[in-house]
Amino acid sequence: MTDAEPAPERLYRHTVPVRLAHWINVACLSILVMSGLQIFNAHPALYWGERSDPDRTLLSIEAVGSDDATPVGLTTVFGRTFDTTGVLGVSTDSAGRIHSRGFPSWVTLPGPQWLAMGRRWHFFAAWIFVVNGTLFATYSLAGRHLWRDLLPSWRELRGLGKSVVDHLRFRHPTGDAAGRYNGPQKLAYLGVIFGLGPLIVWTGLAMSPRMDAAFPWLSDVWGGRQSARTVHFTACVLFIGYVAVHVVMVAATGLWNNLRSMVSGWYRLPPPDPGGTR
């Protein structure tokens, strides 16, 4: 820290509620995804409609025994079958034992096949996820977070194409522009907060027989309970995809700076790039 360069500008970027909600979400989503895959493993197939007719699967993961007694993991998606031995259908646990199961033990919670405990974790984390998400959405709507930080301007919407291309080239805003969320970033956050989040809760509730009795439209909108289950799973995959892109972007735009700002709130503006993108 004895460098002669001018001290970079610091910015108080994330308020306490935003930081708190973010890290609660990290924990909840991890538990929800892993316990969700545990629950999925109890019946590793997806369907459309009300019923789960065994001859009409959209996706199925199975273990098929072979002559030498080593099973093969087969994943069938829209009628096309792939050998996924080692990951889907057949996988080894941390002790090296071979198991016939949908998703491998290293992505499920608990690791071994244990549906009852998977459900306990799932619904516990789901409650915190829903309360946390509701409080965060209320805070964003009632406070300034949504209007000041999340809603894109017309200019940002018009520049969306260019901004996406810049992202793909890993050319990121610097200087003052780096202190704000950019267009694609805002849309991604809005989509997750007000789209994907509510969608995954909705389709989760649509699978509940009691909720489905009281509010049949919960599952009717999707064409039935098994459709809702498929949408729930798809939303989970989209969540994983969102997190993957998010983490890559966090790493690409200054891992330490970004992490610190989500912990302490303080963000150091990257100095303006003379040949910058803005």
């Binding site: 999925f40 109890a42 019946h43 009300e50 019923r51 549906l115």
Partner: peptide, 12 residues
């Protein structure tokens, strides 16, 4: 009615 198993499948 639709029978919803805890495992995830449904049958009518």
């Amino acid at each position: 009615t639709r029978h919803d198993c805890v495992e995830g499948w449904s049958a009518i």
